[in-house]
Design a protein around this nucleic acid. Sequence first.
DNA 1: GGCGGGGTCAACCGATCGGATGATGCGGAG
DNA 2: CTCCGCATCATCCGATCGGTTGACCCCGCC
Lengths: 221, 221
Amino acid sequence: MTATDATPPIRLLLCDDHAVVRAGLLALLSSTAGIEVVGEAGSGEEALAMAARVRPDVVLMDLQLGDGMDGVEATRRLASGTGPTPPQEPAPRVLVLTMFDTDADIARAIEAGATGYLLKAERPEELFAAIRNAAAGRTALSAPVADRLMAQMRTPRPTLSERERDILQQLARGLGNREIARALFISEATVKTHLGRIYGKLGVDTRAGAVAVATGRRLLG
Amino acid sequence: MTATDATPPIRLLLCDDHAVVRAGLLALLSSTAGIEVVGEAGSGEEALAMAARVRPDVVLMDLQLGDGMDGVEATRRLASGTGPTPPQEPAPRVLVLTMFDTDADIARAIEAGATGYLLKAERPEELFAAIRNAAAGRTALSAPVADRLMAQMRTPRPTLSERERDILQQLARGLGNREIARALFISEATVKTHLGRIYGKLGVDTRAGAVAVATGRRLLG
DNA sequence: GGCGGGGTCAACCGATCGGATGATGCGGAG
DNA sequence: CTCCGCATCATCCGATCGGTTGACCCCGCC
């Protein structure tokens, strides 16, 4: 509404695996002053290729991307400029737009280099503001996300090691200890040891409970 | 493009718990000829109240609606005209627009009276066509959904009884047999009997496996 | 070099689970 | 009325799991 047309529009790339949602965002953002949607992608791979071509200022990235590369990995490559064409001059800012405000998702996205993290449940105005902030290099977190981050800093969760996550993943497939052992090429005893530590860290005492907590915290791939 | 403006526009009500997605759909559909968005709702309760007021021709309904009433229940009440104001003259057509094409979701939605079922991954043109079909009372299923329906008819899955789903739900919380028994006010022996049948129906032989298959088929609340 | 965290493994034991069998009551379909 | 599916319960037994303890190795850090 105000006279902000002096600056060139923000070049935006959409990445979401749901075509209808993507089309909706396109329609929504195209009619927003100061923003120009320069591309759409339905997968992480597409986003990387498209970004290398159109060089957007900001990538609006969903974390859940169906089959192929997940949003975190796509974010990592985009933000680090490690695209298919190696020397990505100005790495685009990645703004994560997703449905979940889980600790694990937030942490992974930020660690991967996201400039912002906001929720699809947020008001559209927040989205516009976040895009502008991201374009300017400012961090953009929506309120619930910021809350969770602060809470996480105050009471740091015991973090699962990579191996423990491996175990947990097999566990969530419903495998028994012996099968997990075979799947990961370790002994059954080791599996039990890991499971013991996992129980401790997740605050449960049964394997089904571990699966429940893990799915709740979205610790699984 | 063609001269179809002779008929009045289709009055549409959006129901999706994610404000950004809703705004996107609004922007997308508002610019579509023959469709008029007459309301938005962010929850099932809101959708019911809003539908009673604005009397839409079609309700575009997401199945996953956060905390309150779920999309299936909202669909059931809308389609049966069992709103807050009992005698709902012409019950609106409900077109389900969701992310998942799971057998369980499809079956529940159709059973609840949905006129159509399509996926957010579908092309926007499919959405427009489906809305027009729904308004005319024609069933609108997107291709993958129709495929699954046919496959389900050909090889009918053994369906879990309600009680078995109760057991499964407790199981997915990580409870042991004794705890499940207490939670459902039955004996431990009964729990085991149910579990045995559940294993058979799901084709697994461990409790963790049952949880895995159940989550995969989205059999849990 | 010491120290600690992460990963690996073994052996043990009590509790639990899985599976089978048999039985009862109840409701709806034929 | 009879049959059948569903839910309920009991009993038994072998297999498995959970929890613990103790141990070893490797690697990075101080």
